[in-house]
Design a protein around this nucleic acid. Structure first.
Lengths: 152, 152
DNA sequence: TTTACTGCAAAGGGTTTGCAACATG
DNA sequence: CATGTTGCAAACCCTTTGCAGTAAA
């Protein structure tokens, strides 16, 4: 499918607005704030993080993150604890990546896999499709371990 | 570290008993039932599944699964919904594998990755160790999509 | 007989939702 | 004006825990 690229701030805004319109939703201030926070942070954040940093009510934060997820603008990420984390969808950032998950504090960082590994993955996934009834849409590759902060 | 193999039923029992003893816990009937159910099922199951099938109280099921996890006998698996899923640890089954996660119903199935892919993964992980402060311990590779049952 | 385990009921904690007021197209 | 959105508070639901009784070493 079409991979869309977003370079600077306002280009991203336009894209988000378009996607929201596409599912019959508005691009309100609260949602723009969330997008800005996610773009600025550059790694998966919990709803708590976002709500606290931008002084938003938790309920609205969750609701808007859900809406943005439905619009294909935000992705939910599974971390190391029971907090859901959110990041900008890869389609928006134009950058496929994976996650380093800290088993101690639950934090998540981004990490780029070598191209060769991605190719191997794609090949393996292609083979699998025929073997079982499962229809793969995407994959997630996480490295679980200890982050720099927790290792010290 | 040492990879332990478990062939038939009672060998597995002995292994589990040893691991439990090692953390000062007993191998009770309830725990044996859980291990049996997990071994019979052959794929990640929710606490609900296990409790319902074997007529066990949910609380005891959760508690025993936690104990078994602490003993290194059971692993917690992240699925497609908010239910935690559990499976026998790879050290016990002697079989490294990954998961097919259904985005529709949340179910999880096992799947073996090609050896070549695993090698590529190991290599990429090795390179990463030096590049960042993150210390990887293990990895998880999940294919997200639609299971055979939900595709129909 | 000491220590671990069970089962019930109640509490925890992240997430979602009902509802009335508000804002936006 | 019609519809989507907000914010508070309450509900939800998976999971954990306190406690009194039971079973195992």
């Amino acid at each position: 499918m079409g991979q869309v690229e977003a370079d600077s701030g306002d280009g991203l805004d336009d894209l988000v607005a378009a996607r929201l319109r596409h599912v019959g939703q508005r691009y309100t201030t609260g949602r723009r704030v969330l997008i800005e926070a996610l773009a600025a942070l550059g790694r998966p954040a919990t709803a708590d993080d976002l709500a606290a940093e931008r002084r938003l009510p938790l309920s609205t934060t969750y609701r808007n993150l859900a809406t943005l997820e439905r619009a294909g603008v935000v992705n939910r990420v599974i971390g190391g604890d029971d907090h859901a984390r959110f990041e900008l969808a890869e389609e928006l950032t134009g950058r496929h990546h994976h996650h380093l998950v800290c088993l101690t504090c639950g934090s998540v960082e981004d990490f780029d896999a070598p191209a060769q590994l991605e190719q191997g993955l794609a090949r393996a996934i292609g083979q699998l499709t025929t073997a079982s009834g499962f229809r793969p849409e995407t994959h997630r590759l996480d490295l679980l371990g200890t982050c720099a902060a927790c290792a010290s």
